[in-house]
Design a protein around this nucleic acid. Structure first.
Lengths: 291, 291
DNA sequence: AAATAATAGTGTATGATGTACGCAATTTGA
DNA sequence: TCAAATTGCGTACATCATACACTATTATTT
């Protein structure tokens, strides 16, 4: 099925004239002044609307809707997250949601941020940056794997909501005591973030497959099978050699080749890579000390 | 818009009985025997169909269709990649495509693999693993940025086509001469791959924004603006401090905070992180030598 | 050569989806 | 009390993926 968000399409394809219809005040974010589309999306994530005093009271709230959306996505995947299913879960009509979010994208923006949750709070005691970064990385990975639909949405650099910033903040807290410059700290955040999200992809893919009804066994076999196509294919001498070396096979617990003697689970693979990354960071930190 | 693949939906939602209709031989992959869905997808990527000898000659080929699909996605993004637009570009009816691919997902599977292209061939001379891995990483990043729609598709661990394996093969070639065990080599592949894909996300997001009609300036402002919401917000003390430190601002060339004195472009940020990862790998390699 | 079998390409139909629009009920400031 | 603004909803529509049936095409069989 591919990663469908199930979008149908905005009927009026061309640039929307942003005309002010009378029927729909559309969330607001005052229609004319509002800047870029990106800015508008960001606003919706950060700025609360001051409840108007005139009309009838809303029976829903953005939070309600976001919670419902998350529940749907958690349960049946991103493909099941439609305006209809969300509204249905709340016992409202599809169109009711549009009083709270201008479109599905806005609902997803909000749901993503909410679904990320808040990062683990650091214990009062300082455990050393390495241990803390590791902890952060595991937490982030766990968060992503527990909601595989988050990774189904293409990464967008904006908009970023409160929780997204919280995760960044939490990371920066882990290295707050180090000698890194402010700029270096941001770089380290980028490195670790990049590794964690990239390295979680396989586990996320498995999680998604599971919730899609594919058994772990089936999945492992399929992944292993594709790799094994390399064997004896002259185009892939190195891959072929590695796959056929000694233990060579595919372990049951993991679709990836096992390490001689010690089979690696995906967790262990993640861990191994993380330690390499941390080593690299540590080396950089050490290099700052001498002078 | 979110990352839509523009899927409409498969009308028959429940598990398809895989019944054999008479009207549509459906690609084939013989209907009853075929194993898992995953296996079936993989087959389509790897196993050529032996042209049937009975009926009329096909006027298209999978390659034709894949090329058209890639052209559409390159030009107008993944959202524009519909069975209709692809068929239109080829001058055929929408349904004609279904004689070559059982569904859109299969077409995308094939398009993704083809769009990845082949990795850069290593020059005959050995340049040292570090330089070669670096080269591979840059090439992969460039490939992803040049086709930002690839990253719009959720990562799936399977199926993986020939080109995907080629990229893996090329990586393994770069470290073929090292003392790493076969298993370690696979791990290194995982680490570098994870970093590269994770670290390319921002650049990819920018590339996507650009092709969506958003100016680099707008984009940078939006990304920077979200970060700046942290300033003076008690929830984000570390982030706030870093953003307001010295140079603190947002450089024009990049939405990310600039490093004291030396503004970093996204490329430089990628490079910085990559060197940390390579340092970590190098340290591991060195640790293997003594014994 | 004619008949047969199987495939390729197409038109039409269907159900899902996001969302525009306008109406009716609700709430409150004037 | 009344008018203005707002909420929730039914309906309408465009766009998708795709099922199905029909025709034209081609090779094999007779």
């Amino acid at each position: 099925m591919v990663g469908k968000t199930g979008q149908g399409h905005p009927p009026g394809t061309g640039a929307k004239p942003a005309r002010r219809r009378e029927g729909l005040p559309q969330i607001s974010t005052n229609p004319e002044s509002a800047g870029t589309e990106l800015q508008r999306r960001s606003q919706l994530l950060w700025e609360a609307q001051p409840r108007p005093s005139r009309g009838s009271k809303p029976k829903l709230s953005r939070e309600d809707i976001v919670q419902a959306a998350i529940t749907v996505a958690d349960g049946d995947g991103l493909a099941a997250l439609t305006m209809h299913t969300v509204a249905e879960r709340l016992g409202f009509s599809t169109m009711a949601l549009y009083r709270y979010f201008p479109n599905k994208e806005a609902l997803i923006d909000a749901s993503v941020d909410a679904a990320m949750g808040t990062p683990p709070q650091r214990s009062g005691t300082r455990a050393g940056w390495r241990r803390e970064v590791r902890h952060w990385a595991y937490a982030k990975r766990a968060m992503l794997c527990s909601r595989p639909w988050l990774a189904e949405l293409p990464f967008v650099a904006a908009p970023h909501g409160p929780n997204w910033l919280s995760w960044h903040e939490a990371f920066l807290q882990t290295i707050a005591d180090t000698a890194l410059s402010p700029e270096d700290k941001m770089d380290m955040l980028s490195v670790v973030h990049a590794y964690v999200s990239g390295a979680s992809d396989t586990a996320i893919s498995l999680a998604r497959a599971l919730s899609r009804g594919i058994s772990p066994d089936e999945w492992a076999k399929a992944v292993g099978a594709d790799l094994c196509r390399a064997i004896n294919d002259p185009r892939y001498p190195n891959l072929s050699a590695i796959l056929t070396s000694q233990s060579g096979g595919i372990s049951d617990s993991s679709p990836l080749p096992v390490r001689a003697g010690k089979p690696r689970t995906m967790e262990e693979g993640f861990d191994f890579g993380l330690e390499r990354v941390l080593d690299g960071i540590e080396r950089y930190m050490v290099s700052l000390e001498p002078p």
